Computed example of a mutant assay.
Amino acid sequence: MTEVRHEDVAAYALGLLGEEERVEFERHLHGCASCAEEAGAFAAMGELIKGVHPDDLLPQPQDPQVESLLVRRAATERRRRRLHRTFMSAAACLVVAAGVFLAVNSMTSGPNPDSIHSPAGALLMTGRTYSATDPTTGVSALVGLEDKGWGTHVALQLKGVKGPLQCRLMAVGDDGRSEAVASWGVPAKGYGVPGSPDPLVLHGGTSLPQSELNHFTIETSDGRTLATVQV
């Protein structure tokens, strides 16, 4: 920098110079004591004009240099706001895209989206799970278990069952004692079958502690076993 104007000194002190201009001016400051002194003075002046906008100036400014600095600061702030808006818009687009991807991915490769946010879906993802497929009926069952003070919280995911049926989930202990965990109706279209691919997902409970459970049976109301899950 062969020549330094007062406006350049003030702009540096107020942080209005671009990156290249700032680096060049700092090199100049190392060899110019007068500019270094003026930069300190202008830094103090910056506190006085920090909240002033060029539009708020009187029609006839008393100091053209101050007006110039304010105009330059306003332009810098507008440029920063534009960059901020661009960045935030890009970030918002990424968030939306990520949300769409996760939603589609969970629909195509994970559990039923409706079940993920249900107590049954959460238990099937975090609890101890056991599964089985009956070779005769083709019914597949996934059971999730969670210890509770009152017994065992039980979740069930059922596939490959056609209706109409009335069914129930039975918990059987090591001592042969059995308890009904839940009961439900299967519509004609069924669950987890062609034309109705979503599984049945539900939850219930048994007073049997998890350590005393032997197996679960999914059976119809007339006593026909659809699947048995050993635990």
Rank of each mutant, 00 (worst) to 15 (best):
T2E: 10
T2C: 03
H6I: 09
E7G: 10
D8Q: 15
V9M: 14
A11F: 12
L14K: 12
L14T: 11
G18W: 04
E24V: 05
E24I: 03
F25V: 09
F25I: 06
C35H: 09
A36E: 05
E37C: 02
A41V: 13
A41H: 10
A43E: 12
A44F: 11
A44I: 13
A44C: 10
K50C: 03
V52C: 01
L58F: 09
P59G: 06
V66K: 02
R72S: 13
T76S: 15
E77I: 09
R78P: 02
R79Y: 05
F87T: 11
S89W: 08
S89D: 07
A91P: 08
A92Q: 12
V96L: 13
G99L: 06
G99V: 08
V104P: 05
M107Q: 06
M107N: 05
T108F: 05
T108L: 13
T108S: 07
P111K: 03
N112A: 05
P113I: 00
D114Y: 00
I116A: 03
L124G: 13
M125F: 06
G127L: 11
R128F: 12
T129I: 12
A132E: 10
A132C: 09
A132K: 14
T137I: 05
V139T: 01
V139P: 00
S140C: 06
S140A: 10
L142G: 13
G144L: 10
G144M: 12
G144P: 07
L145Y: 14
E146P: 10
D147H: 15
V154M: 11
V161R: 00
K162Y: 04
G163A: 02
G163D: 03
L165N: 01
Q166I: 00
L169F: 01
M170N: 00
A171M: 08
D174L: 15
D175N: 15
E179I: 02
A180I: 06
A180P: 02
S183K: 09
V186G: 00
P187Y: 08
A188T: 08
K189L: 14
K189T: 03
G190V: 04
G192F: 08
G192V: 01
V193M: 12
G195N: 14
G195R: 13
S196W: 13
P197Y: 15
D198Q: 14
L202E: 13
H203D: 15
G205M: 14
T206C: 09
T206H: 09
L208T: 15
P209D: 14
H215P: 02
E219D: 08
E219Q: 12
T220G: 03
S221R: 12
G223P: 14
V229C: 08
